[in-house]
């Protein structure tokens, strides 16, 4: 009997059940993120003598806060796996592995991409307009995502932008996969494993390029790649393969989970 079945109705039921069960927690979390964004923004401004923020400031704050929030949130995916009784309830719910996986992707990754910019915009707009009322010298410059994005990536090539966003999403997928694999402290363990792997590749690259001096073998190439653009393309392909592999591993972990 195939386990790859996908029913949109069951997917909807699962998503609905998740929202009905967790709407209070979700509301509290969104409120917490809003307040944290406002508070941290105020502290940063305070340390900079209440200087006004332009779109580039906002965008930098957005990217850093998105990365931190995204990693923490996706790093706690599959919450049922943290507890034996919850895991039994979750795994025996009448939905296929594919449906459960899709719901987790929607809740832990896609919803963040949609909801976080809205919360961020509301928080920074609220903070800026409030600070303007308190501090006379502060000038409220409304945040516009499009302009902020263009300012932030003013000198970047399109491929570099792609690389940047793929890296951001890739980190969240890494945390998501870690959460599917570790029962206790999934985020900390994911960060550790990621750090170890990254360190391993850096050491290998250093051994190949510097110690074995492969970079002198052909001056015009780095491991057979002859330009920065080509290098960026290769990294994008590598990231895409890694992200697919990580998501497949998370699905496999869900499918094979035993209690």
């Amino acid at each position: 009997m195939s386990t790859l079945s996908f029913s949109p109705t069951r997917f909807y039921y699962l998503l609905r059940a998740n929202v009905l069960e967790n709407y209070k927690t979700m509301a509290m979390m969104l409120g917490g993120i809003f307040l944290a964004l406002v508070f941290v923004m105020y502290l940063i401004q305070l340390s900079n003598n209440m200087g006004s923020w332009d779109n580039q400031h906002y965008m930098t704050y957005f990217i850093i806060s998105f990365l931190i929030t995204g990693l923490l949130y996706s790093g706690h995916a599959f919450p049922a796996f943290r507890n034996k009784e919850k895991a039994i309830h979750y795994l025996t719910l009448p939905a296929s592995g594919g449906e459960k996986f899709a719901v987790e992707i929607v809740i832990r990754l896609l919803s963040l991409l949609i909801i976080y910019p809205i919360i961020f915009w509301l928080a920074v707009s609220f903070e800026s307009s409030l600070v303007e009322k308190i501090y006379e010298r502060y000038e409220y410059i409304p945040f516009v995502f499009q302009s902020g994005f263009n300012d932030f990536f003013r000198n970047a090539e399109p491929i570099q932008k792609t690389l940047f966003f793929m890296g951001l999403i890739g980190l969240m997928i890494t945390a998501f996969t870690g959460a599917s694999s570790f029962k206790r402290f999934p985020f900390v363990k994911s960060v550790l494993i990621f750090g170890v792997l990254l360190g391993f590749f850096i050491v290998i690259a250093w051994l190949l390029l510097d110690v074995m001096d492969l970079k002198s073998y052909r001056k015009d190439t780095i491991l057979f790649i002859s330009s920065e653009i080509e290098m960026a393309r290769t990294v994008i392909v590598g990231l895409a393969i890694a992200m697919t592999g990580l998501l497949s591993a998370a699905y496999f972990k869900l499918k094979e989970k035993e209690v």
């Binding site: 009997m1 195939s2 386990t3 009784e85 039994i88 795994l91 025996t92 296929s96 449906e99």
Partner: peptide
Amino acid sequence: NRPASMLSDLFFVPEEFYTP
């Protein structure tokens, strides 16, 4: 394999259970 069609016709009440 935990197929959905089996799970929709099976209910397991464990000794220690979770209720939201």
